[in-house]
Amino acid sequence: MAELRAHADASIVIMLIGNKADLVDSRAVEFAETQNLFFFETSALSGENVEPAFLTLLQEIYDVVSKKALDSSNLVKPNGGLLSGLKIEAAQSEVSEMKNLSTCSC
C-alpha cells in the first residue's frame, strides 16, 4: 500500500474486494479499515456484491474525475479556451455483458 500510494496520483481510488463472503468465519476486514479503503465482500459462488462493487468503484472514480474537472474549470488552455473535464459513461449493456462473462472457472 505504501508503494502504491507513493507512486500513484494522490486522488487514486483503491478498493479491496474480499471474495468468499459465504465463509463468514474467515473474515479479514481490519486491513481495509486501517488503510482507509473501500471494501466489499463478494462471492464468486453466488455472485453476491460483484456488480455493486464495480459500480461503486466506477462512481468513486467518476466523482474524483468530476471534482478535478471542477477544480480546473478556471484554468485556461494555451489556445485561450477553458479546460474541460472527462465524462465517464458505463453502458448498461457492457455491464450486463461483463456480468454474464464473469463466471469463475477456478
Rank of each mutant, 00 (worst) to 15 (best):
A28N: 08
S46W: 07
G47D: 05
A6R: 15
E94I: 06
F39D: 00
M15P: 01
D22E: 11
V65I: 10
E94A: 12
H7W: 10
E3T: 08
L82V: 06
A28P: 02
S43K: 01
H7Y: 11
D63G: 06
A10W: 05
L82Y: 07
D25A: 14
L57Q: 02
N19T: 14
L101E: 07
S72M: 07
N19F: 01
Q59P: 00
A32V: 04
I14P: 01
C104K: 14
K77P: 00
N79S: 10
E97L: 14
E33R: 15
A2G: 14
A28G: 08
V50F: 01
F31P: 01
G81F: 09
S43G: 09
A53M: 03
L55M: 13
V65L: 08
G81Y: 08
A6P: 01
L83R: 09
Q59V: 02
E41P: 02
C104F: 13
F40T: 03
E89D: 15
T34F: 09
S11R: 15
L86G: 03
F38S: 04
R27V: 10
G85W: 00
V13Q: 02
C104H: 12
V50A: 01
L16E: 02
V29W: 05
G81C: 10
E89G: 03
T34D: 13
S73Y: 04
H7G: 13
V76L: 13
S96V: 10
K77Q: 11
L75I: 07
V64R: 05
D9S: 15
I17F: 05
N74L: 12
S73I: 06
G80S: 06
F54C: 03
A91H: 14
P52R: 06
S46E: 11
E3M: 11
I61S: 01
Q35S: 09
K20H: 07
V29T: 12
L23H: 08
L57Y: 02
G80V: 06
E60Y: 02
S43C: 13
E97I: 06
K77I: 03
N49F: 02
A6D: 11
M98W: 11
A8E: 12
S105P: 02
S43I: 03
L55E: 10
P52N: 10
V50L: 08
Q35L: 07
N36M: 07
E89T: 15
S102L: 12
T103D: 07
L58V: 08
F31M: 13
S93P: 01
L86P: 01
D63L: 11
E94L: 11
T103E: 08
A32T: 04
S96C: 05
T34R: 15
S11I: 04
S102T: 06
V29H: 09
L86W: 06
T42R: 00
M98I: 07
A32F: 00
